[in-house]
């Protein structure tokens, strides 16, 4: 378990990820972005689908973070609220399947690269390390 590198999938909207994506992967890691974390950009949080988030778990994610604009500052008005609803739906699905609902988290961040963006992934990494690998990966 000690060499366990959690697979963290971070789904973010164009606006919350644009600065993060503008730096090199090395630069992002240097800021503390976890080694097993990947960024998946969608044009707006409202475009995020429940099935895409579930597919991430299906494909081996140990944890999923959704990052979108502040609830009242979405570039497309309601997108980040919709993202939160869909992350909430996946949380319920995980619980329904007997998996830890904490494996998915929702965050509303201001635009631009800042430490909170990295912290979101770091916190998920810590949470997943405490829970262990996703039970559907067959790794114990």
């Amino acid at each position: 378990m000690s060499d366990f590198t959690p697979n963290i999938q971070v789904f973010c909207c164009h606006y919350t990820s644009q600065q993060a994506l503008s730096v090199s992967p090395e630069g992002l890691r240097a800021d503390g972005f976890p080694a097993g974390a990947s960024i998946n950009r969608v044009v707006c949080g409202g475009k995020l689908k429940v099935s895409s988030l579930l597919k991430a778990f299906e494909d081996g994610a140990d944890g999923v973070c959704v990052v979108a604009c502040p609830e009242d500052k979405c570039h497309n008005l309601m997108g980040s609220q919709r993202a939160a609803k869909r992350a909430g739906a996946v949380k319920k699905v995980l619980a329904e399947l007997g998996l830890e609902a904490e494996r998915i988290s929702m965050h509303h961040l201001e635009r631009g690269f800042h430490q909170e963006f990295v912290t979101v992934a770091q916190e998920m990494e810590q949470r997943v390390k405490a829970m262990g690998p996703s039970p559907i990966k067959g790794e114990k």
Binding site: S51, L54, E58, L97, G98, L99, I136, G138
Partner: peptide
């Protein structure tokens, strides 16, 4: 169609968990 996609994913995850 959207719900088919979601249920498919749920069942795959559920059955993977059961091995």
């Amino acid at each position: 169609e959207r719900e088919v996609e979601i249920l498919a994913s749920m069942l795959k995850v559920g059955r993977k968990k059961e091995g």
